[in-house]
Structure formats: structure tokens, C-alpha cells
Simulated scan of single mutants.
Amino acid sequence: MDRLTNTIRPYAWGSTTLIPELLGIDPTGRPQAEMWMGAHPGAPSRLDRGAGETSLSDVIAADPAGELGRAALARFGPRLPFLFKLLAAGAPLSLQVHPDLAQAKEGYENEERAGIPLDAPHRNYKDANHKPELICALTPFEGLCGFRDPEESARVLAALEVDSLKPYVDLLRAHPAEAALREVLTAVLTADRHEMAATVTELAAACTRLGGAQYEAYASLAHHFPGDPGVLAVTLLNHVQLQPGEALFLGAGVPHAYIGGLGVEIMANSDNVLRCGLTPKHVDVPELLRVVRFEPTDPGVLRPEASPTGEELYETPIDEFRLSRFVRAEGAAPTELTAATPQIVLCTAGNPTLGGLTLTPGEAVFVPAEERAELTGAGTVFRATVVA
């Protein structure tokens, strides 16, 4: 097994303190948004097996069967099928959705045929893969996830007593749920930008007057993204406040945005994002409306399911990744983590030992398939692997 050196991405929305606090290092004063663990070509983890530092992607490419195991190789090909992250939001992320596998393949092929460069700002599909994801809170974590019942959104908007919002309230109450959500989101994203900016300004002022966690979140979003139609779009979504250890699973077509907090995130290895708002980046409204699932849903807060071995599993319907947690007390019996699939194990508290490597918070280890891995000592670790 190998201790990993991981890249921290300095996206503008990142917290300046949350990742340094976990790592026990001094903040730089600059945003530190995500720490990537895995073999994504954008920032692969690095390791040293005695011949100098190399990337995990190169290690896997040199011996995919040995590193990934035959079952994972047969199922997902010669690549690590997940990307594991620490995510630290100091400001809101964009409101976005991800395509399903068929949509991603079709969209990627269409843009390839059209000759749109991969780095073009108006390109939607960077690869042909889907991007389901799971976020697990390490601190109190605030976000927006999935459409709620249109009647609830109508009630929230009506309480603001803003005249320019009344047409949206009427639309939400006039149709069956899916049609109402589609019609309102379409109207918001295609409205005159000058008129929408004025509406968002009024919405923010009314939210500030009313107060409360939900309205304060909308006012904060309007502060960060003045005039952005995404501020009105998020009023259609469930407002979620996770406590440490709680998680959200975000499947294809589910609109979502993270507002603030530190979490462990795992996703299928893809860059495909379609943005709805809260961003200066490209918003492709027709393609977005094709991908979004206009279905009211409960956000489905996940709590880990414990097992006799002490492993606490976050159950999802996805095979590209499997996330679990071990919270170990002093003197606990050793736990066997040996598996037929590749693993990345991340320490978030204490100083547990994995296969002779003592970990500190923020340190991660790559464990090749079939390599013996015994976990001892006190602390908390998250285990990322695949279902094969």
C-alpha cells in the first residue's frame, strides 16, 4: 500500500480554513476548495514505491490487473472508476445537474462530431461517463438538493410578498407537479436578464426581512450572485442542513448546489456538469432542460448502516464507488480491510494505523486489490472502493 500525495484545487469558492484545520497546517490565506484522491487525469494522486514519485494513474496503467483486481478491471476497464475528494465550501458552488450514462454518451459524441474543443467554455460534455456523487459531512454542511413539492415552493415564495414573484407562484399551483416545475424553471432561465435582476434584488430584500435558515440562505446566494436567475431557481429545491456523518446521494438529473461546509465526496470519474445558475459560466438552457428530472423528491439524508465488523456503509445504487466509515475507539480489535478491489483510505480524525502506516487527519493511502490491509488504533477513516 502507498501513502498518497494529493493536489489541493484553489477554486474561488473554497474555504481558506477548513482543509488546513483538518490537516493541522497554517492557512495560506487563499481558497483551498478540494483535495483530489485518485487517478483523475486532471490531478492524479502521487506515490513513491522507491524509484521516485509517480502518478497513481501511471501506476495503474502499468499493471491494471494487479492494481485494480480482475473483477474491477473486467467491469470498469483499466482505470480507477471513482474520484475521492475532500470538499471545503467557503462560498456557494454553482447550481448544477449531471447527465445519466446514455445522455453523457450521446452528448459527448454530438460535441465531438461538432468539433467543439474539450476546453471550450461552451462545451457541456468532457467525457462519455455519468457522474453520480455522494457528499458526507465532516462539519455542519448546508446545501440544496432535488425539487420539493411545488406547493411548498409556492408557499415559500408567496410568503415573501413580492409582486414580481406572483406569476411563478401561480404557475406552481396551476399544473401537476412535473409540468409546474418544468414550466417555472424554463421561465426563470429564459426571462429577460434585466427584469430577473430586479426580481432577485426584491427577493433578497424580502428574505432578509423574514429571516430563518432557509430565507437567510437565499439572501446569501443573492449576495454572492447578484441578479443571477439561479437565486430564484433554488427556491424550487429542498434546503438541507447535514450534521457530521450525514450524507446526500445525488443521482442523474437531480439539481443541487452546495452552500458551505467541509465534507468527504466521492463520485464516478467524470467532469460532466450542466449548470443552472449561481455562476458566470456557460448555461446551456435547452440541454439542461433535456437532462433535468422534474420530479419532486425527498432529499434522502443518508446515515451509515453499521455492520458487525464496525464498518458503517453509505448505501447507494452505484457500483463505480462504495463509501464506508470506521470510527475506532482506543483498544478496539484490529479490522481486516483486505479486498478484491482497489481502495483509498482517508483518515479524518485520530492516528489510526493501516498496514504499518500511521495516519494523521487528511492523509490517504492507496491499497491495491488483494493486498493485505489491517486497520488498528483509534481514529476515524473513510474507505472508498468499488462494487465488482
Rank of each mutant, 00 (worst) to 15 (best):
M1P: 14
D2Q: 12
I8R: 13
P10V: 11
Y11E: 07
I19Y: 09
P20Q: 13
L22Q: 14
T28L: 03
T28Y: 02
P31N: 07
P31D: 03
A33Y: 08
W36Y: 04
G38S: 11
G38K: 13
H40K: 03
L47H: 08
S57R: 14
P64L: 01
F82H: 06
L86Y: 14
L87S: 00
P92Y: 06
L93P: 14
P99F: 13
A102F: 02
A104M: 04
R113P: 02
G115V: 11
G115R: 04
L118T: 12
D119M: 08
H122I: 09
D127P: 15
D127V: 09
D127I: 12
E133H: 01
E133R: 03
T139I: 05
F141A: 14
L144V: 10
V162D: 10
D170H: 06
P176G: 12
A179K: 15
A180F: 09
R182V: 06
E183I: 05
V184L: 11
A191V: 03
H194E: 15
E202V: 05
A206L: 10
C207R: 04
G211Q: 04
E216D: 15
A217D: 10
L221G: 01
P226Q: 05
G230S: 06
G230C: 03
L237F: 04
Q241P: 00
L242S: 12
Q243P: 01
L250H: 01
V254Y: 02
H256V: 01
A257K: 08
G260A: 14
G261I: 04
I266L: 03
M267H: 07
N269G: 08
L274K: 04
R275D: 01
P280H: 02
V283Q: 04
L289M: 14
R290T: 13
V292Q: 07
V292I: 11
F294H: 15
P296T: 08
T297M: 15
D298S: 14
V301E: 12
R303V: 09
P304F: 07
E311I: 04
T316N: 10
V327T: 14
R328I: 11
A333N: 08
E336Y: 00
T338C: 01
A339V: 02
A339G: 00
C347H: 00
G350R: 07
T353E: 13
L354Y: 02
G362F: 06
R372V: 10
A373T: 04
T376N: 05
T380R: 10
V386F: 11
